[in-house]
Design a protein around this nucleic acid. Structure first.
Lengths: 235, 235
DNA sequence: CAGTATCCAGTTGGATACTG
DNA sequence: CAGTATCCAACTGGATACTG
């Protein structure tokens, strides 16, 4: 673990635990509902399993996470201390979406986007039976370009053609789709500018925006342009 | 700077900046009012000046801090983005004081304690004229044992005898004094147990507790014992 | 599924001394 | 006062492969 700051300040003591790389993202992932090792991994795909294991143990020692074994299934759960991180993670996300606007190319991960979408499709607003939504990111290499959301009473995400008829298709550069998801730009604006195109029967085309619940942070009010001094974390 | 997490999630983007070691403590120090390089340093004494310089530049690039030169004096100020970290730092401190109870020996820094006290003595509740409060931490080596707070209309902290008559003296192990400051234990409890002793005229002895404004986090309600699973961040 | 084992490159940041 | 310069040990964590 990170070495001590040598301060009794509660902020310092909290950060000794929480400012270790990946830690807050693991907590975020657990807040989002992941309870199993490989579920959490899906939310932090760039983290090695060794490191995730280590972080979970550190969080366990700190009393933030509890590990339960039942049979040969392992479950991780937030303790009371962990649940009290919810408002902090929310505040960090709100701050992040207000003040860190720039996304690098390396931030645009289609797996993560689809993983997020999966949890946020309003199944109950969709037609009964099976609906297949196609996603195409024309700017990506062929292997990552096409995705399918097969919606029944649950949502399955496929990165290979599941073979079903596609009822409606969304086409947009990955960056645009991510920005729509984050609420950086509105669905209507993206459509109007031509960056985002929906193909399919007009009834589905007009219904589709209602199916997507955007990121929890999408509705966060953004700072007016007068408040922006500079936003650049690169370099 | 820390490498990217490769995620567009606003929490991840925020943490790319904020989870770098020392960063939040620099922000905390600026929230507490420090505006000059060496003032900030006093709040993060274990941080090398090189590193502080680097962090201030990173925070500058990120639009959290602004650097002003006037004459040969340099001032650092929080921007709007920086001021919006205030609730996050407060929440982190509240979480820290609730859930990270253990303080290691290395966390007990008398300089930091006196530096904190300096900012939190209620001068207006004290007798007019000069009042000198002595502090003795009997458990410390002689060089760090005795401190003086010379209160006039402002507060001066001395680690060498300033030569004035001491009107009232507080004696306590450093850990006890820190715990009182943090609100982990009450002044009255510390006195009753004999860990903390006040010497001087009875009028001053009984007035003295009113002079100390404790840490901003002292009043944070603590979790009931039933909520505590384990608290240990050690290695 | 739920992790461990191993290895090593790269980076961080601590220590110390120095400068305009 | 407000930083820079330099050096290097230690540690982190990324990559990859493997296991019960």
């Amino acid at each position: 673990m990170a070495s001590s700051y040598g301060q009794f300040c509660p902020v310092a003591k909290a950060m000794e635990l929480l400012d270790e790389r990946w830690t807050m993202l693991v907590v975020r992932e657990m807040i989002a509902g992941s309870q199993h090792f490989n579920d959490i991994r899906r939310g932090v795909p760039n983290m090695s399993p060794t490191l995730l294991s280590k972080r979970l143990r550190t969080l366990g020692r700190a009393g933030v996470v509890e590990r339960w074994e039942h049979g040969n299934r392992v479950t991780y759960q937030l303790t009371q201390a962990g649940r009290e991180l919810v408002p902090i993670v929310e505040a960090l996300g709100q701050w992040g979406i207000r003040w860190i606007g720039e996304l690098g190319e390396e931030d645009l991960d289609p797996h993560l986007l689809m993983w997020d979408l999966r949890r946020n499709i309003a199944v109950d607003r969709m037609p009964p039976g099976r609906t297949v939504i196609g996603f195409t990111f024309p700017d990506l290499e062929p292997a990552a370009r096409d995705w399918w959301a097969v919606v029944t009473d649950e949502v399955d995400i496929c990165d290979h053609d599941p073979g079903f008829e596609v009822h409606v298709r969304v086409l947009a550069p990955l960056r645009t789709m991510v920005q729509v998801w984050r609420g950086d730009i509105g669905w209507a604006d993206a459509t109007r500018s031509g960056d985002l195109v929906v193909e399919g029967p007009s009834r589905l085309r007009s219904a589709l925006p209602e199916w997507f619940l955007l990121s929890d942070f999408a509705a966060t009010p953004r700072p007016g342009p007068e408040a922006v001094t500079s936003i650049s974390v690169g370099g």
